[in-house]
């Protein structure tokens, strides 16, 4: 995928193409585990956005100082520190959320997205680019979590609800499926895998379709350019003849 193609695709397209969960298949473990409610998804998403953005910034700053042999330990120290900080802050200010997300907050340390972006992007790009990459990757991870948790919560419990993580007060709650018609399997791990598979297939289908379209457009453009060149040559010949 060329850089110019990526730029052409724009924000939403980029969210889908470079989506860490459904596009690059990174960080799936936590995605499957915590997407039972909207609240969990938002909490985890925000934690990952914060860690990923700051880690990308810090790593792009210290990358020039770091010899190749020790870059993994250096990145891990940075990431582990950030995750622990976020964990402590969450435990202090959003204790309920921290209890439900539990170990998955600590496990952000080994979330492939974070180390993956540090290795693949932040260490070879400048601070602004790395920050943007961290933010975008975090956003598209959150976007995936939201999609998964919305589907699972609505189908599994029939209710869509959101509560304030600081006070645990319900902000809104809306029943979309009448009681007794929910599909409880979606709240279990089986439901997580099902939802993941369907979404991944959809994303993949979209990508294939789009790639075909892009290839066709590129071909058409190339053909048009050829035609134009031919026409130009013909006019040039005519002009020459006339002269």
């Amino acid at each position: 995928m060329s850089e110019s193609n990526e730029k052409k695709r724009g924000f939403w397209s980029e969210m889908i193409y470079n989506n860490p969960v459904f596009g690059l298949y990174l960080g799936i473990c936590s995605t499957l585990a915590i997407t039972t409610t909207l609240n969990n998804a938002i909490g985890m998403g925000v934690a990952v956005i914060v860690v990923l953005t700051i880690s990308n910034i810090v790593i792009s700053l210290i990358a020039p100082l770091t010899p190749d042999e020790i870059h993994i330990p250096v990145y891990i120290v940075v990431i582990a520190t950030l995750v622990t900080l976020v964990g402590m802050l969450m435990q202090a200010y959003t204790p309920e959320l921290y209890t439900t997300l539990g170990t998955f907050i600590d496990l952000i340390v080994v979330n492939c997205i974070i180390l993956g972006r540090a290795e693949a992007y932040a260490c070879s790009h400048n601070v602004a680019e790395s920050a943007r990459d961290g933010l975008m990757m975090g956003l598209s991870y959150t976007f995936s979590l939201l999609a998964m948790s919305l589907i699972r919560q609505i189908l599994g419990s029939g209710v869509i609800e959101l509560s304030n993580p600081m006070t645990n007060q319900l902000i809104f709650s809306l029943r979309l499926i009448p009681e007794g018609f929910e599909i409880p399997v979606f709240t279990t791990q089986t439901g997580a895998f099902l939802t993941f598979a369907i979404l991944a297939a959809l994303v993949s289908a979209y990508k294939l379709n789009n790639e075909k379209k892009e290839a066709a457009a590129a071909k058409a453009k190339a053909d048009a350019a050829k035609e134009a060149a031919k026409a130009a040559a013909a006019t040039a010949a005519k002009v020459k003849e006339a002269a």
Partner: peptide
């Protein structure tokens, strides 16, 4: 390099812990 990095991280963690521990 690793030593300095760990020291900085340790200080940061200690500082935030001092703030959050009583709240937790």
């Amino acid at each position: 390099l690793l030593g300095v990095l760990c020291a900085i991280c340790g200080l940061l963690l200690g500082g935030v812990n001092a703030v959050t521990a009583p709240i937790i």
